[in-house]
């Protein structure tokens, strides 16, 4: 029983990371209807930046904040410089550009930092909180951070004029322009937010999976699975999907197929959901009357 509980809760913690990553994917999907295959490598790059800052003496949360801000800026720049010119190109061109970005981020990090695996600090104390024997403080911390990110994202989109404008721009660009919204900038902001959120996923994952240039490819797969499962246009669904995928990965890995082929859980989820229920578990159905 206690192994089961342990598997469950550590799955929940990893699920938090997938949830944040999925949230980043949903953000870009909502804005541009694209799946960002480079999301994982962007997060990995950001995590290395954070490591670098801490290595040169910056305290954890300062490095954390700075990384999020820099990632945001990088996301905006990437959208304006690399993604924008392909706005009207076919999907294939866009996918190829994303794969190009995967290569670039991966190899630039490898070049700068090398391929040996690095330790990445957790901001949370060594000792578990409140004598919690089931979860380490990092595991509970990740879950707290996940909900904080979700709350911030929700609050931003729900209560700020800018968040409202971004939702409008994603939904109906033509009408958005008519009310004076600079739609192009909204898309760039969406990318910036996605990059910033993704960087948090990277920094939360790194203490568990360790830092190396290829750390994100499997995490991204789980992130995809989470986003697809929850409905790729639904932030709530993405977060729920993240936790479900995290727990399933651990339980299926531990009790059914063995931890060796956990990734196939993600594969099965992705293909299964896409084929059988493309809108995902929580895909939104918009009621329209004409």
């Amino acid at each position: 029983m206690s192994t089961f509980a342990h598997q469950f809760f550590s799955g929940l913690a990893m699920g938090g990371v997938y949830a944040i990553l999925a949230l980043a994917l949903v953000m870009i999907y909502q804005a541009t209807h694209l799946v960002n295959f480079a999301q994982g490598e962007m997060a990995m790059f950001a995590t290395y930046m954070a490591w670098n800052m801490m290595d040169s003496g910056l305290p954890y949360w300062a490095a954390f904040g700075l990384t999020v801000v820099l990632s945001f800026a990088a996301g905006v720049i990437i959208e304006r410089v690399i993604v924008r010119p392909f706005a009207k190109a076919p999907v294939l061109s866009m996918v190829i550009v994303f794969i190009g970005m995967v290569f670039i981020f991966n190899s630039v990090v490898g070049w700068i930092y090398g391929y040996e695996i690095k330790d990445f600090r957790s901001p949370f104390p060594e000792k578990a909180w409140f004598g919690n024997t089931l979860m380490s403080s990092h595991e509970s911390g990740v879950i707290v951070v996940t909900f904080l990110v979700l709350a911030l994202v929700y609050g931003f989109f729900r209560f700020t004029p800018l968040g409202l404008a971004m939702r409008a721009a994603a939904q109906n660009p033509a009408s958005s322009r008519l009310v004076g919204i600079k739609v192009g900038w909204m898309l760039a902001l969406g990318w910036g937010l996605a990059a910033a959120i993704g960087s948090i996923a990277g920094m939360m994952a790194a203490p568990v999976v360790y830092l190396d240039p290829n750390m994100m490819s499997s995490l991204l797969l789980y992130g995809f699975a989470a986003a697809v499962l929850g409905g790729i246009d639904n932030p709530w669904g993405a977060v729920a999907g993240g936790f479900i995928v995290g727990v399933m990965q651990n339980l299926v890995g531990a009790y059914l197929v063995g931890t060796q082929i956990q990734l196939s859980v993600a594969l099965v989820i992705i293909i299964g959901v896409l084929v059988m229920k493309p809108s995902g578990l929580f895909g939104r159905v918009i009621v329209t009357r004409v």
Binding site: I82, F86, A89, P90, G100, F103, W111
Partner: peptide
């Protein structure tokens, strides 16, 4: 030693550049 990573960067830049030159895709 780490420069062994660079060919992948070459791939990446080339992919994006090729798409830039032919925005509607090579096809």
């Amino acid at each position: 030693e780490n420069a062994k990573a660079l060919p992948w960067a070459v791939y990446g830049v080339l992919l994006i550049a090729l798409m830039f030159v032919m925005p509607r895709g090579i096809a």
